[in-house]
Simulated scan of single mutants.
Amino acid sequence: MPIEVRPATSFADVRTMVGPKRPDADVCWCLSYRLSPKENTALHREQRGALVERLVRQSVPPGVLAYDGDEVVGWAGVHRRADTSFATNRRIPHLDELDVWSVWCIRVRPGHRGTGISHRLLDGAVEFARNHHAPAIEGYPLDNRGAKVDLTMAYVGTKKLFEDAGFVEAASTNSVLNGFPRIVMRKSLMRMDLS
């Protein structure tokens, strides 16, 4: 059965992908880049899940989910850059004034990794942004030059993953993760008028 990527409208499935095993645990919930640093630091334990549940109910949910049949197997956080901490991040430059979207987290469940789901998630994030009239979409992956990346830090993706999805390197950054520089990768979503 092919992997299907859909908007993240199921809180239960988002919780499966990014929530803690214990509801009172203080984990990311994929909010670190979705909120300002001050907002992110102020939220704890159940408050984090409650906020994600509200975000999932919004007209534009906070990302996309990958499914293998009825089983959720992947997550990608994607939204307008203006609604993320990338709007004010000084380490990752703004290229222009376009109302671009950002994809900042790609997670695949254990047991499903290495099967191409991250590629499908990134393609799904691009379609999600395109369906919401984004002129372009950016990611800020690691430029690991083929070196092994620690799985806990691989959530931002690699340059190759983004290149395979048609993104091009647009800028360097002052951000480093797991010892690797992060770069700005961008894909234009504007349709060309050929008439």
Results as ranks from 00 to 15, higher is better:
residue 80 R to M: 03
residue 8 A to D: 06
residue 34 R to S: 02
residue 92 I to D: 01
residue 48 R to F: 10
residue 88 T to P: 04
residue 107 R to S: 14
residue 91 R to Q: 13
residue 17 M to D: 10
residue 74 G to C: 02
residue 13 D to A: 10
residue 28 C to G: 02
residue 72 V to Y: 05
residue 100 V to D: 08
residue 21 K to M: 08
residue 13 D to H: 15
residue 38 K to S: 13
residue 41 T to V: 08
residue 73 V to Y: 01
residue 13 D to E: 11
residue 57 R to C: 10
residue 94 H to E: 02
residue 10 S to A: 03
residue 12 A to R: 14
residue 72 V to M: 00
residue 107 R to Q: 14
residue 103 V to I: 12
residue 18 V to F: 03
residue 23 P to Q: 05
residue 93 P to I: 04
residue 102 S to A: 15
residue 27 V to K: 00
residue 80 R to A: 07
residue 43 L to D: 00
residue 87 A to T: 04
residue 107 R to L: 13
residue 51 L to D: 07
residue 81 R to Q: 03
residue 11 F to R: 06
residue 100 V to Y: 04
residue 95 L to D: 06
residue 72 V to C: 06
residue 51 L to P: 07
residue 71 E to T: 15
residue 67 Y to F: 15
residue 86 F to K: 03
residue 109 R to D: 13
residue 66 A to S: 11
residue 33 Y to A: 13
residue 16 T to C: 08
residue 34 R to A: 12
residue 10 S to D: 06
residue 69 G to C: 13
residue 22 R to F: 13
residue 81 R to P: 00
residue 55 L to T: 07
residue 45 R to V: 11
residue 92 I to K: 11
residue 53 E to R: 05
residue 109 R to K: 13
residue 77 G to T: 02
residue 37 P to Y: 07
residue 8 A to M: 03
residue 24 D to H: 11
residue 69 G to L: 07
residue 34 R to W: 09
residue 33 Y to C: 09
residue 87 A to F: 07
residue 62 P to C: 05
residue 58 Q to L: 14
residue 32 S to W: 14
residue 77 G to S: 15
residue 102 S to V: 06
residue 106 I to G: 00
residue 85 S to L: 14
residue 28 C to Y: 06
residue 19 G to P: 01
residue 73 V to F: 12
residue 80 R to F: 08
residue 58 Q to A: 14
residue 99 D to G: 10
residue 62 P to Q: 07
residue 90 R to I: 08
residue 67 Y to N: 06
residue 23 P to L: 01
residue 109 R to M: 07
residue 37 P to R: 10
residue 36 S to E: 09
residue 63 G to D: 09
residue 63 G to C: 01
residue 95 L to I: 12
residue 62 P to V: 10
residue 68 D to Q: 11
residue 105 C to N: 07
residue 9 T to M: 11
residue 21 K to P: 08
residue 43 L to I: 06
residue 44 H to M: 11
residue 59 S to T: 14
residue 57 R to F: 10
residue 17 M to C: 14
residue 22 R to K: 15
residue 52 V to G: 00
residue 62 P to M: 00
residue 71 E to W: 13
residue 27 V to M: 01
residue 75 W to Q: 06
residue 101 W to K: 02
residue 81 R to Y: 03
residue 29 W to H: 04
residue 52 V to E: 04
residue 90 R to P: 08
residue 30 C to G: 05
residue 36 S to H: 06
